[in-house]
């Protein structure tokens, strides 16, 4: 089962040098934690209503470790494994999409549910709106091809290169897989070396083996 993991994905505040709070002012922080959590929820909905929530994100626990999910109003835009460093991924989204980014798990509820079903072996294809703005050119054509590889099957990098009309671009297919902004949902794990060995994976070799094992078992 997956569940939303800790909200403190971003580095915690380091207190700078400032005048110490004189005694009565400490009262101002009473019950602050619980209230701030509620106010955050209120900000998520207000931002969404005002069309100011350009990127919503959440983190979920998965059999492959914590996954970051991020969506724009058009759809899921990014899935990231922990080894990519979620803070770095969010900073890149701020630069590439918009800095109007908020943790807003509700916006990711559908994606979260479908991923949970997939990891539990109850789902074979994803039915989610995707925002493909992070895929460009040749890589985009590779990323569009990958979902055509059926669940439980694999193709070689050379087969994918041929399928997208550029049989000599085997290495470029490799780098397209390595820069897949939506791993798991866009199944780059179904692409192997021609000799059948797994090849690289952005979530690490163990994650790739786990996903191939999951799909082979079904």
């Amino acid at each position: 089962m997956t569940s939303p993991s800790s909200p403190d994905l971003l580095p915690a505040r380091t207190e700078g040098v400032r005048p110490a709070l004189p005694e009565p002012l400490e009262r101002l922080s009473i019950f602050e934690g619980a209230l701030l959590e509620q106010l955050h929820g209120r900000l998520e909905s207000a931002a969404r209503e005002a069309d100011l929530l350009d990127v919503a994100y959440t983190t979920i626990d998965s059999p492959l470790g914590p996954l970051l999910l991020a969506a724009t109003s058009q759809g899921l835009v990014r899935v990231a494994f922990a080894n990519e460093d979620h803070g770095v991924v969010l900073a890149a989204l701020a630069a590439a999409v918009s800095p109007r980014i908020l943790r807003a798990p509700e916006r990711l509820a559908e994606a979260t549910g479908q991923l949970e079903e997939y990891f539990a072996g109850h789902r074979r294809t994803f039915d989610l709106p995707l925002d493909r703005r992070l895929s460009k050119g040749f890589r985009l054509s590779v990323h569009r091809h990958l979902p055509l590889i059926p669940y439980g099957s694999t193709e070689s990098y050379a087969q994918v290169a041929a399928a997208v009309g550029n049989p000599r671009a085997v290495r470029a297919v490799g780098s397209a897989c390595a820069t897949n902004p939506l791993p798991v949902v866009i199944p780059c794990h179904r692409v192997l070396r021609s000799d059948g060995s797994p090849g690289g994976y952005l979530g690490g070799p163990r994650a790739k083996a786990w996903l191939l094992g999951l799909e082979a078992a079904a």
Binding site: L10, R13, P99
Partner: peptide
């Protein structure tokens, strides 16, 4: 530019105290 969420995390408590 930092993701806006970072500003909420870093300064949400300060803003609440100022408002209170």
């Amino acid at each position: 530019m930092k993701p806006f969420e970072q500003l909420v995390t870093d300064h949400g408590a300060m803003v609440l105290r100022v408002c209170r």
